[in-house]
Measured scan of single mutants.
Amino acid sequence: TGEEYIAVGDFTAQQVGDLTFKKGEILLVIEKKPDGWWIAKDAKGNEGLVPRTYLEPYS
């Protein structure tokens, strides 16, 4: 389980392990790392690192 967040901007993977997403996408945050990069999963089940500055809590 995780917390749902909504993307407030588009993000394109910079390196292997990053997750590309579009503004408005709902992501499930699995782990919040202290460096500001969180592990998240998208609706298709893809998992990767995302920058927390692009996310806001979804309710």
Rank of each mutant, 00 (worst) to 15 (best):
A13T: 05
F21Q: 00
A13I: 03
G2E: 09
W38Y: 06
D35F: 07
Q14R: 15
L49S: 13
T1I: 11
V29K: 01
E56Y: 10
L55S: 00
Y5K: 01
A7N: 00
G9K: 15
K41D: 02
G2A: 12
V8M: 15
K33L: 11
R52Y: 14
E31C: 09
I26Y: 05
W37L: 07
A13W: 04
T53Q: 11
E3H: 13
I39D: 02
T1P: 11
K41M: 09
I39C: 06
N46K: 09
R52I: 10
A7R: 00
Y58W: 14
G2P: 15
R52L: 09
L27M: 06
F21I: 11
G9W: 15
L27D: 00
E56T: 13
V16W: 11
T53H: 12
I30S: 05
P51Q: 09
F21Y: 03
W37M: 10
P57D: 04
A7F: 02
D42I: 02
L49F: 12
G48H: 02
K33T: 10
V50H: 00
G17S: 08
E3C: 08
L27Y: 02
E56S: 13
D42Y: 01
Y5Q: 01
E31R: 07
G17E: 05
L49T: 13
D18P: 04
W37I: 07
P34Y: 12
G48A: 02
E47M: 12
E47N: 08
N46A: 10
E4L: 15
L55D: 00
W38C: 03
E4G: 06
T20R: 04
A43E: 10
S59I: 12
L19G: 01
D35M: 05
A7K: 00
Y5T: 01
F21E: 00
N46P: 01
G36V: 04
I30W: 05
F21R: 00
L28E: 06
P51C: 12
P57N: 06
W37C: 05
G2I: 13
K33C: 08
E56V: 14
G45S: 05
G17T: 09
I26H: 07
T1E: 14
T20V: 04
A13P: 06
K32C: 03
Q14G: 10
E31D: 12
G36D: 08
G9T: 14
L55A: 01
G45D: 06
E3T: 13
G9N: 14
E25I: 03
V29I: 15
K44T: 10
T53F: 12
E31Q: 11
V8P: 01
G17D: 05
F21H: 01
G17L: 04
L19T: 01
K44V: 10
A13F: 03
F21D: 00
F11W: 12
K23M: 09
T1R: 06
K33M: 08
T53N: 11
K33N: 11
A7G: 05
P51M: 10
Y58P: 04
L28I: 11
K33D: 07
P34T: 15
P34N: 12
T12S: 13
G36A: 05
L55Y: 00
F11A: 02
G45W: 04
A43D: 13
W38H: 02
K23H: 07
I30C: 05
Y54V: 10
Y5N: 02
W38P: 00
P51E: 07
I26V: 10
D10L: 02
K23E: 07
P51G: 05
K33F: 10
R52F: 14
G17W: 07
G9H: 15
E25F: 05
V8Y: 04
L28D: 04
D10A: 08
Q15V: 09
P57H: 07
Q14S: 11
Y5E: 00
L19S: 01
D42R: 02
L49Q: 11
A43G: 12
R52N: 15
E56M: 15
K32L: 04
E31S: 13
T20Y: 04
V16P: 14
F21V: 08
E25Q: 14
E4C: 12
R52W: 14
F11L: 04
N46Q: 11
D35C: 07
F11R: 08
G45A: 05
Y54D: 04
V8W: 05
Y58C: 08
L55I: 12
I6P: 01
L49K: 14
A43P: 08
K33I: 07
P34V: 13
T53M: 11
D18F: 15
G24R: 03
D35I: 04
E56L: 14
E25Y: 05
G36W: 04
I26K: 08
Y54S: 08
N46G: 08
E4S: 14
K23Y: 08
L28K: 08
T53K: 12
Y58G: 05
G48W: 03
S59V: 12
G24F: 05
V16Q: 11
E56D: 07
A7L: 02
A13Y: 03
A43C: 08
N46F: 09
K41N: 05
L27F: 06
W37E: 04
A40K: 00
E25D: 15
A40T: 03
L19N: 01
E47A: 09
K33P: 08
V29S: 01
K23F: 08
G17V: 04
L19W: 02
L49G: 07
T12D: 13
W37G: 04
D18Y: 15
I6S: 04
G36M: 07
T53D: 14
V29C: 03
A13D: 03
E56F: 11
T53L: 11
R52S: 12
W37V: 07
P34F: 11
V8Q: 07
I39H: 11
E4V: 14
K41S: 07
P51W: 14
V50P: 00
V50T: 03
E3Q: 13
V16D: 13
T1S: 13
V50R: 00
T1Q: 14
T20K: 04
D18M: 15
L49I: 10
T12Q: 13
K33H: 11
F21L: 05
W37P: 03
K32E: 04
E25L: 03
L49E: 05
P51V: 04
T12G: 06
Y5F: 10
K22Q: 09
V29G: 01
D18W: 15
E47D: 06
F21A: 02
E3A: 11
V50S: 02
R52V: 09
A43Q: 13
A7S: 08
G45H: 05
F11G: 02
